[in-house]
Design a protein around this nucleic acid. Sequence first.
RNA 1: GCUGUGGUGGUGUAGCGGUUAGCACGAUAGGUUGUGGUCCUGUCAGCCCGGGUUCAAGUCCCGGCCACGGCCCCA
Length: 450
Amino acid sequence: MVERPRGTRDFGVKEMAERLALERGLDSVANCHGYNRVQTPIFERLDLFTAKSGPEVVNQLYAFKDRSNRDLTLRPELTAPVMRMVADSMRANAKPLRLSYFGQCFRYEESKKGRYREFYQYGIEHIGASGPLVEAEVIALAIRMMQATGLQDWTVRIGHVGVLRRILEQAGIDDWGDSEDFVGDAMRLLDKGDYSGFWDMFQDNIAMDISDDWMDLLANFVGASGKIQREGDPIETAREMFQGDAEWLKIWRDILDDFEATIRAVGALAPTPPKLEIDFTISRGLDYYTGMVFEFHVPSLGGESQVLGGGSYRLMHLFDQPDLDPCCGFGLGFDRVLLAMENENVSIQKQERGQIAVIPLKDVHAQVLPIVGGLRDKGHKVHLEVRDRGLKRAMRWANGMGVDLVMIIGERDIESGNIEIKRLADGFTAQSNLDLESIDEVISNLLHLG
RNA sequence: GCUGUGGUGGUGUAGCGGUUAGCACGAUAGGUUGUGGUCCUGUCAGCCCGGGUUCAAGUCCCGGCCACGGCCCCA
């Protein structure tokens, strides 16, 4: 027996039905917001991802060389490929572009529940426009998608890396050294919620001329960010927090005004999520985010609770299209959403059309097969008994398949031109002429009146 | 990368040094020839892999693989 590679999964019929239903559900929400699906290759040139995320990502990639010694890799994410495609072949399209995508991605890392080496991501990108309305549209779409899953227990956290970065830079953190990325370190620590690590960083560098005033402001700011018990409106708190020269203050207030406008517009565009936090310590650990960032969490998932994340970013400049920056988008962890739906026992299965089993007795295929084909043409779900076995067995099979109706056709029926169609749920049997139209009508009646 | 737990037919499980490795569900064939779900009978099918200890190993030990969990990480 050959085993499945580690971190991969098979999806059986039942599981696939759930997955398809979710995919379609998400598609339908995306469509309502003006988004359309695109698809990119499952492998790409390696440098697409090293350009985006740095050379060290190779360690987590399924990278390989092809026969011409080209460096390729299975895609670890979908944003960069979509950006690449836009720069490649969608330059003439009217902007902004609203694109959605779905597919598997690959990362070479330890697999566990909610974290696989082959995983599925659904995402959207809004390209070629920016501002509070764009961001609000994107967040609103994310909220509606989560709502469409039927999940009850989830949290939206919205932050702004521009705000965070500006505060840290104003505090003079970037003056501490030239080789080290103190701002980045500080952001990561805050993002992790490692406040003691954050403050240790200050203690260690106390000689670096950070004024007591700034220390107090930072303490205040972190406190206002939602992770620590806070009072009042975090945006308002941030707005009034700093004094400074007029020019800097204006920029600061403009950013916060825009951010506030985004939040307001989200409230107008989308239903209120179960829980919403404004939190300026979110940084998502990615360098290319430049403005608003957000994450959706499902607490019941435990350690791997983030199911959706995104924000405003600059990547198009990597493809010589800087005028399209910043863009805004998010990725949704398809597998994790499914896990959460399983946990909460919700489902977006739409009602299946009734299924019909057709059981030919003896050799009547010449007469039966055209009817089977005809019924399928009309959209019925038809299971044909392909084995030559006794009627009793065939009935058991039909029952086991879970079909709604059974149609038995033998020589007797061919001769009389009259057949019986039985509804398994209650045993009710209806007569029909042996012609497609008549059968179609009887079947429809039986299914609807069931 | 570190660490914890576990792996018995397709599924769920019992057995914890010597058993024909038990049970249930399942699949399949019958219970006499054109009507299912119940019932009865037969059949199919299992100790994750490799070493070691022992007269004897699903059962104990070591390694690997896989799964699940806790840290780390998560472009």
